[in-house]
Nucleic acid binder design. Structure first.
Lengths: 351, 351
DNA sequence: CCCGCGTAGTAATTCGAATTATCAGCGCCG
DNA sequence: CGGCGCTGATAATTCGAATTACTACGCGGG
């Protein structure tokens, strides 16, 4: 059937059908079907079937400009071999939505790394531009690279809130502020009056947001903020107890594990004597809609970061950006998991 | 810097630099670097940097060039939301090796699905050609699509042995034949003389390979093959016991779980009264080099499919294919996991 | 009789990058 | 002084598909 080697082109079909290439294109697209005689159309379609012609997507898109490809850039490896599979839920959402929107995904894995970290601008050029737009993932970020991306007016969306001094950039993040406030509110409703925040010394966006949410909640109830910055759980716990704290908000589940151990050593029960809430996910490789119990066995009270939805929405925002290049920011609500580490305080403290 | 809308083309760069488009192309490819004055080259490179130019992969590939992009096509979703994350270990290996070889990965997610399955040729177009070559993953395969790929002389590698009536195609698979033979050999060495194979009714390559390995081993020891095809473990176990079997090779861990339960009901101990070996992985989402104990708690005797290595080797074979388009087949050895479900037979049967 | 108009196509152009053919300018040798 | 060879760049072509401009033909009306 097919001519010897390689692909069948419209020109070859045209030659076999005794027409011009333009007619083949018209028959294929059905455009201006009025201009073509039924006999001619049938003859062309016959040859199309015989040859097994398929459209070469390249020629078509060369004219159209867009290539229906979205880039996915990650500062770290996409499929990490370590235990904590941080990216997977995001990627799941991204893939799902990309499929729905009819885009392919280009994973930028090739870029050499420096300092064990990938770069967007390698040897002066921006490989991301191969795609129509790109989604950026990763805890790290390089302000200078971001600034240059903005400068180039390249459409991109960050997963996770990200601010740039150069101007507004698009992102899809989780609403840590609201979630932390809500957690505080629930503890207050249980009767807690001295609620502390055990934070980390880093100054990235999530940490700042959690702190902002906590302080807003404390202000609302006219309570002084009780923030502890110690890296050692034992020290932090002592400080908190000295302040009469009955409930603690903790940034990481690792720290929470440490706290729990220290509390038990002091003969304190959780949640009977001390309520603890983790401000985020204990299990980074959570499945969407899966009620995973953390591997440590403790059913932490916490809130879940909607990673799957964040990925999906990032794709939607990016696709929107392709049509209208106005930066957009989106914060998605976290869902709060009741868990087993919160309860009413054992020693009600009315003031 | 960048001209407001759309992509920067070589022609635009050329105009800004006061040279012809051909010179820009030459500077980019460094091909005939001797033919261009250092001053001219510097000027062009300056403009390239200022404009943030990147190649249009469609244009380049239309002309027959390569993009340093490998496609990854999967018949099912790449990041499945189900529990059995079948693809991840493969992808991990693929990504790792692609990074090492300096290729980006293009995930073909765009094509809609029919019958819940993706198609390579969607609406008469082959999107795979955007990439330099492609890796195909998935249990399903469409012989007709494969034939057309071969016809188009597009470089591709299947992960998992795959045969096509149209001619040899490239693949990287696991050596089920050798692994099954080796398992049989070990059981024989333990003293078993009546070793059965509990197979499934499907006729895909892995099943055929396991059966071939089993039959080769049985033939070597001049034993009649004892193959059972029942889907119900209770029936299969009865049949096997009627035949005096003391060791059973089982295709799936699910079936093995069923067998174990039935054996316990009959008052049979595993491995004391009956040895059971799973011909493959109990845990599809295995980590490389991780000695995962299956979730059921049973430490099955089995062999591990080197998914990570299969992915990595598929990339290597594909990259080789780009230079020399001769199809290549590669089978990787499985590693045998001793496990706790094999032992010497309780009733030695000398014949 | 010729203009106008509709029909059914074909020729030519476009997209972006790579490659080939070509050309202008210069120095050198016979 | 003419022609040869070399250098450094430009013009032209190619890839496959889509689109626009154009043309050959036929027919009817004024």
């Amino acid at each position: 059937m097919t001519a010897g080697s390689g692909r069948v082109t419209q020109a070859q079909v045209a030659r076999l059908a005794g027409v011009s290439q333009a007619v083949v294109s018209m028959v294929l697209n059905g455009s201006d079907s009025l201009r073509i005689t039924p006999e001619t159309r049938d003859r062309v379609q016959q040859v199309l079937r015989e040859t097994g012609y398929t459209v070469d997507i390249m020629g078509r898109r060369l004219r159209g400009g867009s290539n229906q490809i979205l880039g996915v850039f990650t500062y770290e490896s996409v499929f990490p071999s370590g235990v904590a599979d941080f990216y997977r839920p995001f990627l799941l959402g991204i893939e799902e939505e990309a499929e729905a929107q009819g885009f392919d995904l280009l994973l930028f894995t090739s870029g050499g790394r420096r300092d064990g970290r990938r770069r967007i601008y390698e040897q002066g050029t921006n490989r991301l531009r191969i795609a129509d737009g790109s989604i950026l993932l990763g805890r790290h970020n390089d302000p200078q690279e971001l600034a240059q991306l903005v400068e180039e007016q390249f459409p991109f969306v960050f997963v996770g809130r990200r601010e740039s001094p150069t101007g507004p950039i698009s992102y899809v993040g989780a609403d840590y502020v609201a979630a932390t406030r809500e957690v505080h509110e629930r503890l207050w409703g249980l009767g807690h009056r001295r609620i502390g925040l055990l934070s980390v010394t880093e100054e990235n966006e999530p940490t700042l947001d959690r702190r902002a949410g906590y302080e807003a909640a404390a202000r609302k109830h006219r309570r002084p903020p009780l923030v502890f910055l110690a890296d050692d759980p034992a020290i932090a716990l002592r400080q908190a107890l000295d302040e009469g704290v009955t409930a603690l908000l903790v940034e990481s589940s690792a720290m929470a594990d440490g706290l729990l151990a220290c509390a038990h050593e002091l003969g304190l029960g959780v949640p009977d004597d001390l309520s603890i809430v983790v401000l985020g996910d204990a299990d980074p490789s959570q499945q969407p809609h899966a009620h995973a119990v953390p591997s440590t066995g403790t059913d932490w009270s916490m809130f879940r970061i909607p990673r799957h939805e964040m990925g999906a929405h990032a794709v939607r925002v990016l696709v929107g950006l392709l049509k209208n290049p106005k930066p957009r920011q989106l914060l998605l609500p976290c869902t709060i998991h009741e868990g087993a580490t919160t309860a009413a305080p054992s020693t009600p403290d009315s003031r």
